[in-house]
């Protein structure tokens, strides 16, 4: 166990945890867009800046990729942290002025309007969709193209991607809900593009048919769920000590892993009520 001081409060943590995990676990609010517990930390959006210091040494770090260390003094809302986040949000907002997620976040840091000439991009290049597709789905159906200002996310040659089996988890995990798809007739793949939120179709979310689910007797869905949004709950109506699976529909990204593995066809995909999920809700629901 290691001990850190976060905004003056002592916090205990396991060695090997990232600073972000520790600080969020202790109940502090840290904004992120590129971080998700289901995939490896990446450090692209840089919004999770925290000020760390030890003695006279002090600096800003991207907390998602900074290992928690014993004795570290952390400040989550120092003047420097707020200044850096405000500028980063200003850059993001100017890139994607139509995003309500970013707009709300930017306003909460005191910005009134995008500080630079607006560019009207739909994607913030956080890489969550690319990483989820590679690390969790294993399909690598989408990837980054280009370098520097040319960088964007897409399918090979912008055609429906061969390995894509239209799980749509990319759209589900997108922090600003910008990924759109069209069904390709006769194929499982989707035609993939990014556009503004608003005109997005409802995304599929898993729902358990409690009548057919065998609960703890099977629990296969729990083991395959890449985001860990399924848990077992007591089902007294089915008998004593009986359980069924329950999907946290805010955290579900709709990847259909559970649907494919369920032997009883108890997992059904249904359109979600609200889109998109924000990272904060995903994190909270998983912690909860």
């Amino acid at each position: 166990m290691i001990e850190l001081t976060v905004d003056g409060i002592k916090v205990l943590a396991e060695e090997g945890m990232s600073l972000l995990e520790v600080v969020r676990g202790a109940g502090f609010e840290v904004p992120t867009l590129c971080n998700h517990p289901a995939v490896e930390p990446y450090g692209a959006c840089r919004l999770c800046q925290l000020q760390v210091s030890r003695g006279n040494w002090s600096r800003l770090v991207a907390s998602c990729i900074f290992p928690a260390q014993d004795g570290l003094v952390v400040s989550t809302r120092s003047e420097e942290v707020v200044r850096a986040r405000r500028m980063l949000l200003g850059l993001l907002w100017s890139r994607c002025p139509s995003s309500t997620v970013i707009g709300d976040l930017a306003r909460s840091y005191g910005l009134q309007r995008p500080p630079f000439p607006a560019r009207d991009e739909a994607c913030i290049l956080c890489g969550l969709c690319v990483r989820f597709c590679r690390e969790r789905v294993g399909a690598e159906a989408i990837g980054f193209q280009g370098r520097g200002p040319e960088r964007r996310v897409g399918t090979p040659f912008d055609l429906p991607s061969e390995p894509c089996y239209s799980c749509r988890a990319c759209a589900g995990i997108c922090p600003i809900g910008t990924i759109h798809y069209e069904e390709v007739p006769g194929r499982e793949a989707v035609r993939w593009y990014t556009a503004y939120e608003g005109d997005q179709q409802p995304l599929p979310r898993a729902r358990v048919d409690t009548a057919t689910c065998s609960g703890a007797g099977c629990a296969a869905c729990l083991t395959v769920c890449p985001v860990g949004c399924i848990r077992l709950v007591a089902a007294p109506e089915k008998g004593e000590a009986q359980t069924v699976a329950l999907v946290d529909r805010d955290a579900c990204v709709g990847c259909r892993y559970c649907e494919k593995i369920c032997l009883k066809n108890a997992m059904q995909m249904e359109p979600a009520q609200e889109n998109p999920v924000t990272r904060a809700t995903v994190k909270e629901s998983i912690d909860g």
């Binding site: 840089r46 980063l88 520097g148 200002p149």
Partner: peptide, 15 residues
């Protein structure tokens, strides 16, 4: 700007 890999926000957008 042209040689930035584009991975992280401040370098890509900032330059």
């Amino acid at each position: 700007e042209g040689e930035s890999c584009g991975k992280c926000l401040p370098c890509r957008e900032g330059t």
